[in-house]
Structure formats: structure tokens, C-alpha cells
């Protein structure tokens, strides 16, 4: 790691933050789909879904937060793809800067912009009746898990941004995540699903993350879920980071 890592990352992070604040419509685009899904499920479908004694919006929110992050990281992939295609990426590579800074700045920008989107979605949830009695430590734990999930999945977005050949390819990034979210405990409890589907839903990464967040916000014991969730996040982070840095080395020849 070179001596300029922190300075160069800061300069490039400021650049990415300018991109984000100058296209606030991207934050709106990112949040519209999760908010619309939330309204749809709370006011149209939710009445018919039995989640026990909890308010449905309280049950639903963790899944909606993850959808928000999934939409957000697609924009990170898009920003990186634009840099590669516009030649900005090569310009940066031919300069005497710390090379990891180029990617880390994108990852940090992704965390900041996702936190903004999450706050927006959370405000709408509060408006339509979401309530939590969770204390400050529970909230901090929720924020920490959301940040960890964002960092881990942003590295997947980095792979997509570096290796996609078309904008449509970049846009396809969100689909596998949405697939995982729909076949999970995000919208309905898994115990009404057929055995095979349920086995998949219970043992894939997002269910444990969603259950952990839900339990923290409802002030219930998270049980083993929190450790499974952390293991998944760290596992995804390590694999995605390794593949992303390999793609980066390939890209710069």
C-alpha cells in the first residue's frame, strides 16, 4: 500500500460524492422501487399475509432495506463502467497514484450514498406506521450489518463494473439479488413454502441477514442467525474482494 493511499482515496471519494450529489435523481431512482414495493406489500398484499402478531410493515422493512442496497450498488457498477468506457479509468491508471484508491473510493462512495437512500426509505416506513422500540445499541448493530452487506455486495458490483461489456450487462446485476430476496423470508415467513423451496430460502445468505435485522429491531433474541449472517457477509466480502482485485489487475494489463 503506497504512502498516498489515504490522500488519493479521499480526493477520488470527493469526486464520486460530487457525481452522486449532482445526480440526486439517481438516489430517487434507487429508492423508488423499494418504496413502491413496500407500499404494494403493506397496502395491497400484506393484509393477506400472516406474520403472527407483528405489524406487517415491521416485518417487511428489513427486506426492503436490502432491496434498497441492491439497487444502490447497481449505480456503483454503472459509475465504474462509465469511467472504464470514457477513458477516465486509463487516465487514472497512467498517473502516479495509489492504484487501490481507484476502487476503494468507489466502495466508500457506495456506502455513503446507500446510507442516504436507506434513511429516505426509513422515513417513508415511519410515515406508514413502522415503529421499533429498539435501543441505540440495537440500531447501531443494524447499521453495522447494513454497512457490511453494502461493502460486501459493492465488491460484487466492482467486478460487474470492470468486466461488463454493455450498460445492459451492468443493469442485470440486480436480478440475481432480487431473485434471492424474493425466495427468502423478506416478504413472507418461509414455513408455508414447499420443502425444497423452504430449504433453499432458509439456507441462503439474505434470509439470515433479514432475520437478524428484524429480530434486532423487534428486540428479540437473534439466536444463531446473527453469526450466520455475519459469516455470509464476511464470506461474500472476501470472495468478491479477491475476484474484484483480480479483475482489476487483468484490466490494467
Amino acid at each position: 500500500m503506497s504512502t498516498h493511499f489515504v490522500g488519493d482515496t479521499t480526493v477520488l471519494l470527493c469526486r464520486s460524492m460530487r457525481h452522486i450529489t449532482r445526480s440526486l435523481d439517481t438516489i430517487i431512482t434507487v429508492t423508488i422501487m423499494p418504496i413502491a414495493l413496500m407500499l404494494l406489500f403493506v397496502y395491497v398484499l400484506g393484509g393477506a399475509i400472516d406474520v403472527g402478531s407483528a405489524q406487517y410493515v415491521n416485518y417487511l422493512l428489513p427486506g426492503i432495506l436490502l432491496i434498497t442496497i441492491v439497487m444502490g450498488i447497481s449505480y456503483t457498477a454503472f459509475r465504474l463502467f462509465t469511467d472504464v468506457n470514457s477513458g477516465m479509468f486509463e487516465r487514472l491508471q497512467s498517473m502516479p497514484i495509489s492504484r487501490p484508491s481507484v476502487l476503494w473510493a468507489q466502495v466508500l462512495a457506495s456506502v455513503v450514498s446507500n446510507l442516504l437512500s436507506l434513511v429516505l426509505v426509513m422515513l417513508v416506513a415511519l410515515l406508514i406506521g413502522f415503529r421499533s422500540s429498539a435501543g441505540i445499541w440495537d440500531w447501531l448493530a443494524v447499521v453495522a450489518i447494513l454497512i457490511l452487506f453494502t461493502v460486501a455486495t459493492t465488491w460484487i458490483a466492482v467486478i460487474a463494473g470492470l468486466s461488463a461489456r454493455t450498460v445492459d450487462g451492468v443493469g442485470a446485476l440486480a436480478y440475481p439479488f432480487l431473485f434471492l430476496l424474493f425466495i427468502s423470508s423478506a416478504f413472507v415467513p418461509t414455513d408455508t413454502m414447499p420443502a425444497v423451496v423452504r430449504a433453499f430460502a432458509d439456507n441462503q445468505p439474505v434470509t439470515s441477514i433479514i432475520n437478524t435485522i428484524r429480530d434486532l429491531l423487534a428486540q428479540q433474541s437473534t439466536g444463531a442467525d446473527v453469526w450466520i449472517a455475519l459469516a455470509w457477509c464476511v464470506g461474500i466480502l472476501v470472495v468478491a474482494y479477491t475476484l474484484a482485485t483480480a479483475a482489476y489487475r487483468r484490466k490494467r494489463g
Binding site: 469526486r15 460530487r18 477516465m88 486509463e90 487516465r91 497512467s94
Partner: peptide, 14 residues
């Protein structure tokens, strides 16, 4: 060195 590539490598949003 400094490189000026075949296509103007500028940041359009800045």
C-alpha cells in the same frame, strides 16, 4: 509521463 488517449478522457459530470 502523461497520457492523452485517443478519446478525451474527461469527467463529464465535473
Amino acid at each position: 509521463i502523461s497520457l492523452t488517449g485517443q478519446f478525451a478522457a474527461v469527467d463529464e459530470i465535473l
